[in-house]
């Protein structure tokens, strides 16, 4: 069997006195889709951001996409090309056109020739269903369109692993589906994905494994059919009850 594409060992993260992650061990295999669920403040975003070192771990080691992220001579800029990230707030470059949002990173980061960068950008935009918007600025697009562009932008530098931090939480309910559809397509193509989400339907359908994080530790994990349908811990049970029956 291949070496895991993500390997987190003994990860702790403190912000001042606040210990947000309290010993995380996690391995993700190539092609696996892992959904990370848990209550607000449990450390989901922090864990995700530690994987590409947007947050520096206080303790522990991280390997991702073949890079020793926490090693003494880690080249993070090089490593991050192989680790795409999609944010809740899209974070498109607002002064650039949609096309440039995909072209400029390729040109500046991978030194891709212009013609090739443009061709890749057009192909990816078509794949996420954005057409005829190349010259528009991000602010002229709907949230769902912006998020699909953000996914295409992350793919433009050819990552081996994609991190998603609540990609649909800022979207109106009726356009959540269009973003999830793109993510499902990506999963079907075999992309390795670590997804923080509150979309239990997506987790059930797409995830190979679900992690339930609470208080900075992984409380429970397993295939969605087990963790979501038949949680073993009281904490997971009450969390899922709240998420699935928000009206009560």
């Amino acid at each position: 069997m291949n070496a895991p594409i993500v390997k987190v060992e003994g990860l702790h993260k403190r912000f001042g006195d606040n210990e947000v992650l309290r010993g995380i061990d996690l391995e993700i295999n190539e092609g696996e889709v892992v959904c990370l669920i848990g209550p607000s403040g449990s450390g989901k975003s922090t864990l995700l951001r530690c994987v590409n070192l947007l947050e520096e771990p206080t303790e522990g080691t991280i390997e991702a996409a073949g890079h020793d992220m926490t090693g003494p001579d880690a080249d993070l800029d090089l490593a991050r090309r192989d680790i795409g990230m999609v944010f809740q707030q899209f974070n498109l470059f607002s002064h650039m056109t949609i096309l440039d949002n995909l072209v400029i990173p390729q040109r500046r980061v991978c030194k891709t020739p212009k013609a090739e960068a443009v061709e890749t950008a057009r192909r990816l935009l078509a794949e996420v269903g954005i057409e005829g918007k190349e010259k528009a600025k991000p602010a002229q697009l709907s949230g769902g369109q912006q998020q699909r562009v953000a996914i295409a932008r992350a793919l433009a530098v050819k990552p081996r692993l994609m991190l998603f931090d609540e990609p649909t939480s800022a979207l109106d309910p009726e356009i959540v589906g269009e973003v999830l559809a793109v993510m499902k397509g990506l999963a079907a193509e075999g992309m390795t994905m670590l997804v923080v989400t509150h979309e239990m339907g997506f987790a059930r359908e797409v995830a190979d494994r679900v992690l339930f994080l609470d208080g900075g530790v992984i409380v429970e994990q397993g295939p969605p059919s087990e963790v979501l349908a038949n949680p073993q811990t009281e904490r997971a049970r009450s969390f899922l009850h709240r998420v699935l029956h928000p009206a009560d």
Binding site: L54, A79, R80, F87, N91, L92, S94, P105, R108, V109
Partner: peptide, 14 residues
């Protein structure tokens, strides 16, 4: 916005 800086860094920009 700080998010745009994080997006750039996560794409591999120094």
């Amino acid at each position: 916005p700080k998010g745009q800086v994080e997006a750039a860094r996560s794409l591999g920009m120094s």
